[in-house]
């Protein structure tokens, strides 16, 4: 079961990168805000169907949930909007790797202080080294992208 789940999540990662390139393409003609809006609107429709059939929670409890928990929706929207802006400018892989690094860095910070009731995992040498490798990765992706561009001189935009 475990291996199957790992493969399933791997597939989740694949769909996320496919989503960022598809949205980047659509935004060139439809516009940034319009593309993000469409993604949320269609996602809502699909999830509405899923909830009707498979929902086990209580959607009405939303009204009683603390407001700070509800504010996360702004962050989710920000994520998608910024991704749609970045992909046409720096490409799929640079956007995704930079996004992952931002995610891991903040993840390490949240763990260190135990914000939002999460487990407290202090920043140790191992994690400090991992931050270093992320910076190295970001440097390489920037270099690599610059070189790919120079090899194909005629590029739109």
């Amino acid at each position: 079961m475990g291996t199957f789940m790992i493969l399933f999540t791997f597939l989740g990662g694949i769909t996320l990168s496919a989503q960022s390139s598809i949205n980047g393409t659509l935004s060139r003609k439809t516009g940034t805000i319009e593309t993000t809006f469409l993604t949320f609107a269609t996602g809502t429709m699909f999830l509405a169907i899923f909830i009707l059939f498979f929902g086990q929670g209580n959607i009405l409890a939303l009204l009683e949930a603390p407001k700070w928990q509800l504010s996360a929706a702004f962050l989710g929207t920000l994520y998608l909007l910024l991704t749609v802006i970045a992909v046409p400018r720096i490409g799929v892989i640079a956007t995704n790797i930079a996004g992952i690094i931002g995610q891991l860095v903040i993840g390490i910070v949240i763990d260190n202080f135990g914000w939002f009731n999460s487990l407290v995992i202090p920043l140790d040498t191992k994690r400090a080294f991992s931050l270093l490798f992320m910076i190295i990765a970001l440097y390489f992706i920037y270099k690599g992208n610059k070189r790919s561009r120079e090899e194909i001189p005629v590029q739109h935009r």
Binding site: A72, Y79, A86, I90, N96, Q103, I110, Y142
Partner: peptide
Amino acid sequence: AYILALLAGAALSFEGAIYGEL
């Protein structure tokens, strides 16, 4: 654009932690 992508990831991390609670 690189900074925007970094910010996007940062937002996703906060979102994940908060939605875990919700």
